[in-house]
Design a protein around this nucleic acid. Structure first.
Lengths: 135, 135
DNA sequence: TATTGTTATACTCTATAACTATA
DNA sequence: TATAGTTATAGAGTATAACAATA
């Protein structure tokens, strides 16, 4: 538990610095990171980022103004808007992930088997909920 | 990398909810969590939380107003103020940690050896820097 | 009736720059 | 000169409450 807390702080700090290098806040960076898996509705994004739905409006507004994401109407539910990464958005999030030097260097200290073991343990502890967009 | 990102997002969300249950923001909760290890100067706290020193003034102000921390002058450097957890602050951060239900339940899925293995792997990846207060 | 997304509001977080006190 | 902490300021994140459109 102690180590989880310290590890999170190190990872989060690394991510925040890498996002700031691209003139993005941590929340904006996290949003792009979630969208790498595919489009997501506003409410799905809010749930995934553990924040209120009303916050997502402003965050997505700023990302959209910079051309990193796009709002698209859902075909099946006219209330829903799906948020999609643009090509530029994909480029920026890839740059950010590549600039997480401390984390990447840390993972390099493990061999392939050790990385697999770490992944398996994390998966058992956290069992992430997949967040998909509606069609 | 993918699993690290998802796992730490789950941990961070769990922590944020637990802190909110005690009417604290994530930054306030993280500050209390850092101080569990012992007193720290304002600048040490800022470095550990990956934020500018000027932010810590407001965060510590609010925690102090609620009686959760205390500013103490450093004996060796009169510019420095060390921040210390009060008894109430210790109680609150312990409550928050005990309310991280999803994370605690996840860790329960591992036996003792597996928890040790996870800790060792995380330690090798992140090698946390100890942050101590000045005397 | 319930849900999705937005708006309005108030408070908190955040970085930058300028300042005081101390080293 | 440099460093620790504070203040002032502006932009961004956050929850709550109220709203329109849709289900």
């Amino acid at each position: 538990m102690e180590l989880l807390s310290a590890s999170l702080a190190a990872y989060y700090g690394d991510f925040t610095v890498a996002a700031a290098d691209e003139n993005l806040t941590a929340s904006q960076g996290k949003t792009l990171n979630v969208l790498r898996r595919g489009p997501a509705s506003m409410s799905t994004l809010a749930t995934t980022l553990t924040c209120d739905a009303s916050n997502m409006t402003g965050i997505v507004d700023r990302l959209e103004k910079r051309g990193l994401v796009r709002r698209e109407p859902s075909a099946s539910d006219r209330r829903v808007k799906n948020v999609v990464l643009t090509a530029e958005g994909e480029r920026v999030i890839d740059v950010i992930r590549g600039n997480m030097h401390r984390t990447l260097a840390g993972l390099d200290r493990l061999d392939e088997d050790e990385r697999a073991a770490l992944g398996a343990l994390l998966e058992r502890v956290f069992t992430p909920q997949p967040a998909a967009a509606r069609a």
